[in-house]
Structure formats: structure tokens, C-alpha cells
Design a protein around this nucleic acid. Structure first.
Lengths: 217, 217
DNA sequence: GCATAAAATTGTCAACTGTCCTAAATTGGA
DNA sequence: TCCAATTTAGGACAGTTGACAATTTTATGC
């Protein structure tokens, strides 16, 4: 399809409870196809009929597996976000390394993912949806909470003198800084080629601020 | 409506060429109403009929002023983005101040704007649209180019030793960092209350990195 | 105030949307 | 192998969408 690396597996399907194997495969095809349309053409184009057609199946079959569009969207988000959670859960358990080094590697991984087509295209859609849909809002920020956790841990090692709240502030800034790169240096964005340089700046900046941050009282 | 400050005037209408004053007012009402729906309910809800109804007019009249939905969206984006461009064009012409001080003020203004309901809600929609619409992509990044210009200027004063490309890299990082705050600490976002603390971290971090950045060869 | 350009109304069109229902085909365990 | 559960097909429904055309109403320069 696109690039080969695929940092994050596209979808993490929920466990199959009952039903035939065929149905499970069909549901996976449906969600994968829906995700593809969402990424390539946007949320507006992701209609039930459009998904069914792209799957090569009839509308009736689609609505058999996902009775309403809301059901489909919820399951799609769950599957997509779960795959990111899985990824960030398995990351950076590299003990023995200095916290600075682990911070660098973690940020590198996140920024590399931000440069991927999937993430660059998907997350702006999620951010827009989250502004008008409580379920999406909840699920997206739950993901960010988990992605921030290892960051907070590393910061805690580097700055045991700081309160938990101040560590969170630092993690928030770092997290937000990286996410913001999506729009400017993400996949096919105007400054995608500058990503390596900006990444260096970002990581240097993050280490500096974590080392030197002195909260105002 | 919401908060009173209104950093950026909502819309900058194009000059009226021909037509009655009534028509001009109607077009302004249409775009203002469309923007309101876009912010409150998202792009999907912004249908021609929905806009017409919210304006208290008939669909036929709406399509008289904007024959196609695409026309309306284009004009809306032009008007909205123009108002931001006007804002950032008139900003931070405060000579006599140290560049660090001007950098701080500029970033404060941008971050304050990011915390507003309008910007927090509007820009994620624009980012998502830009991924699937060349016109929106063009217009949004044109806006960012202009918003980055004063940043690059200040960086040039602080770091005359750097090449233009490296100044741009720094400006990109700073710009992206701030935009990223939208999702985490923007209007009604989970960490909106931490915005002041994160802003302090951001600005300290920006000044540090601009002062100390040493590009790799 | 009047004539005319502009604006607004009203109704219609085909295409698309999500949801639902029934019947046929398929799957996979007994 | 057979049969019941599951999956798929196919059609229908009411509602919505963007676009268009004919008509009436309103605004404004002369």
C-alpha cells in the first residue's frame, strides 16, 4: 500500500465471542475498509453504502454486523485506538538506560509514528470528531492518558523534586508539542522533509526543559 | 455568547462588488451562521438546509447567494482565515522591546487564542478538511506561513548566526508546539485549567531552545 | 414613484442517507 | 450427513441532501 514500516498495527479487533469464523473475518474486513475510507476520503465519505461497496458486500450484510452507523463508528474507534494503546503499552521498557536516553527514544518513536500516513490522516479526524461527540472525546483522551504515562514516569526519574502535577505539566507540553507536528510535518505536509531537523530541536528542547524547569509558586 | 474577549474578529467579508446592501448583509449572515454551526456541531451538520433554517431563510435563497455548497465552503474559509491573517498581521509591532520579550508576548497571544472556543473548535475541523481538500490545505498553510513570519523575524534577531532554514526549523517547532496545545488544553479540553502552567513551560522552553540551538552539520 | 435589477419564495428533481425486513445461502458442530 | 445457527442477499422505507427553475417580492438608482 503505502510505506512498509507500519509502526502500529492497523486494528485490534475485540475477542470473538460466539458466531462463525466467517462473521469475525467479515467484521474485520468491514472495520479495516471503513478505516481506509476514513483515512483516504474523510469522515463524510464514510457512509454505510460506501463501506459496503468497498467491501464488495451488500448493505444488508453490513447492517447485519453493525445495525447502526453509530455501532460501526464506535467499534472502529475502539479497534483503532486499542491498537495504539497496545503499541504504547509495549514501548520503552528498556531498563538500564539513562532516563534522558529513554526520553529521546520514546519521543523518536512517537514522532516517527506521527510522520506515518495513517496517524497524520486519522488523528485530525479524531480531534474534529471529539469536539462534537462525547464518546470519541472520552476514548481519544483515554488514549492520550496512557501514552503520557511512560513520559510522566521518565520525568519522575529525572525530576524527583517536582510534584506530580508539575511533572504532568511537563509531560503535557511535550506530548502537545509532538502532536502539533502532525499538521506541519506529518505525512505529505508542507514541511515533512524538515521533520528530522525539527525532531532534533524538539527532543533537545524537551530534555532541556525537563532538566531545568522551575515552577513558579 | 461565550467569552467576551474575541481576539480575532469572526469573519472578514470580501469587498462588496455590485448588488444591494441587503444581499451583502445576507451573505454575511449566511457565513456567520455557517461558521456557528461548524463550530457548534461540526462539518457534517453544516448542510445547506441546516444553514438556511438557522438563518431563517429558504433554501432557494441560500443557493441564490451560494449556488453550490462548495462555493459556500470556499467563501467561508476565505472569510474566516482572512480574519486570522488580519489579526496576525497587526500583531507585535512593538519596537524597542527585546526580542525575547517580543517572543514571549507573541506566544502568549497565540496561546490565548488557542484557548478560545472558536479556535479550539475550528482548527481541528480545518486540519481534517485539509487532508482531503486541496483548497483547504492551501489556504490553511498559507495562513500558517503568515503566522510564522513574525516568529522567524524575532528568531533572526536572536540568532543572526543561523541560516534561514534553521531559523525556520525553530519557528516550525515553536508553532507546532503551540498548535498541539489545542487538543489538550484548548477550550473545554481535559487540561484547560493547566494552560497557564503549560504556557509558562512552553515559553521558557521556546526561549531556551532559540538561544541555545546548535544545528548538526 | 417607477422601472429594473436584485433578492427571496416555492416547488421539484434525482441521488443519497440510515434503518429495517424477509428470504435465501452458507457454515460448522452433532 | 444433516440441521440449526449464522451469514448474506435483496428489496423497501422514510428522510435528507445538493441543485435547479419558475415565480413573487423587495430594494434602489433615476
Amino acid at each position: 500500500m503505502d510505506g512498509m514500516p507500519k509502526l502500529v498495527t492497523d486494528l485490534l479487533m475485540p475477542d470473538r465471542d460466539g458466531g462463525y469464523a466467517k462473521g469475525y473475518e467479515t467484521r474485520e474486513l468491514i472495520l479495516r475498509t471503513a478505516l481506509h475510507i476514513l483515512i483516504e476520503e474523510g469522515y463524510r465519505a464514510m457512509s454505510m453504502r460506501r463501506i459496503a461497496a468497498a467491501c464488495g458486500m451488500r448493505l444488508g450484510n453490513l447492517t447485519y454486523h453493525y445495525p447502526t452507523r453509530e455501532d460501526l463508528v464506535r467499534e472502529l474507534l475502539n479497534a483503532v485506538i486499542s491498537s495504539y494503546e497496545l503499541e504504547f503499552g509495549a514501548i520503552v521498557h528498556a531498563p538500564g538506560l539513562a532516563p534522558e536516553e529513554r526520553l529521546m527514544r520514546l519521543c523518536s518513536l512517537i514522532i516517527e509514528d506521527i510522520g506515518s500516513k495513517k496517524t497524520t490522516r486519522l488523528f485530525p479526524e479524531l480531534w474534529a470528531l471529539a469536539n462534537h461527540d462525547a464518546f470519541v472525546y472520552e476514548r481519544v483522551h483515554e488514549l492520550y492518558d496512557r501514552a503520557r504515562a511512560p513520559l510522566v514516569e521518565i520525568i519522575a526519574e529525572m525530576r524527583p523534586d517536582l510534584s506530580e502535577a508539575h511533572r504532568l505539566d511537563l509531560a503535557l507540553f511535550i506530548s502537545a508539542s509532538m502532536e502539533g507536528l502532525t499538521v506541519f510535518a506529518g505525512y505529505q505536509m508542507p514541511f515533512a522533509q524538515r521533520m528530522p531537523a525539527v525532531e532534533q530541536i524538539a527532543i533537545r528542547s524537551f530534555i532541556d526543559i525537563v532538566r531545568s524547569y522551575l515552577p513558579v509558586l
